[in-house]
Amino acid sequence: MTNAPSKKYEHIYLEHKGSITWLVFNRPGQANSFSNELLDEFTDALECLKSEGAPVIGIRGEGRGFSAGYDIGQVGKANTTGQGSAPDPVADRERLSRNVARYIAMWEHPKPIIVAVHGYCIAGATQLCVYADITVVADDAKIGEPTIPIGGGYIAPLWTPLVGHKRAKELAFVPGNSIDGKTAVEWGWANHSVPSDQLVPAVESLAERIAKTPPEVLRIKKLSINRAAEAMGFREAGKHVAEMDALLHVAPSVLELKQKLGEYGLKEVMKDFRSDRTTPLVPSDDKQE
C-alpha cells in the first residue's frame, strides 16, 4: 500500500492522488519563479518521494503558469562576491552547477517523473522539463527563452539532444523566443499536447496506466533507457553549461544590461528586446509576385 507523503513545505506542496503524487510549485504571485528556497524544497521533496508517495511523480505549477524560471532578483545577488557588486564567476559557476544537479536527480530518480506544463514555462523552468521522463504540455503553453539576454549556454544546450542543434540555436538566438505546446511536441521536446483544461486529467490517466507496471520493472526500464540516451550524449550536453553561463555573466555587455536592470527595472528593459514574432516563423499572408 502506498504511503502518502506527510512532509510540509512553504514554496511547494505535495498532493497524493492514487497512482501519482503531485509536486506543485506554489509561488503563483511570483510566477512560480525558482527561488533558492523553492529549489531547496524541490530537492528535499524528490529525496522524500524515493520512499514515500505514489509509484509515479507529477510536477506542475499553481496559478497561471508552470514557472517563469529563476528568480532574477536572487540570481543577480548570487553573481556577486557579497562585497560591493564585483562579479564572482567561481561562486556563480557553483550555483549554476547545483541547479543542474537538481535536475539530474530527476533523471536518476527511481520513479517515473511526468511534468505537466500550462501557461508559461520559461528559461530555467525548461531545463527541469528536459530531465523529466515524460513531458505533457497544454496546447497554448508558451515555452522558451528569457526576454533579456543576460545568460547564455545554459538553457538551449540542454534542449539540443531533444530538438537538435539547429532548432536549439533558432530558439536561443532571438531574445524571448518561444514555441507553443503543439510545436514542442513536433520538435520532440514534449510527448503530448492537450487542451489546457485536460492537462492534469491526462497526466493522471497516464500515471494510472504506468503504475500497472511493477515498481522494480519501472526502475530498470527507466535506467536502461537512460543508459541508451547517455550513450548518445544526453548527459554530456549538461556538463559544461555552468561554465559557459558563468563566463557570459561577466561579459561587458551583460554587466551593462544588469546595470540597466538595476536602474530602470525589469519591465522597462524588456521593451528593448521584445519581438512580435516567435518561433516557428509564420508565413506571410501577402501574395507573392
Rank of each mutant, 00 (worst) to 15 (best):
D197S: 09
A168P: 07
T160V: 03
R277E: 15
W189F: 15
A229T: 04
P280W: 05
Q259L: 08
S205C: 05
R274P: 00
R209Y: 01
A246E: 01
D180T: 02
S253W: 02
V241T: 15
E170S: 11
H249T: 13
L257D: 01
V282N: 06
S253L: 04
V241Q: 00
V241S: 01
L162E: 08
W159Q: 05
L247N: 14
D272K: 06
V203S: 05
K222Q: 12
K260F: 00
V174F: 02
R235I: 11
A207I: 04
L158I: 08
E263D: 13
N177F: 10
E230A: 14
A251M: 04
D180V: 01
V203Y: 04
L247G: 09
F273W: 07
V203L: 06
D272H: 06
K212M: 08
G265Y: 04
V200E: 10
F273Y: 15
K239E: 14
H165L: 05
V250M: 11
V250T: 15
A168Q: 08
A246F: 02
A242G: 02
E256H: 12
L281M: 06
K182W: 00
V194L: 09
V241G: 01
L247V: 03
H192E: 13
A246V: 02
L199I: 11
A211M: 08
N191K: 11
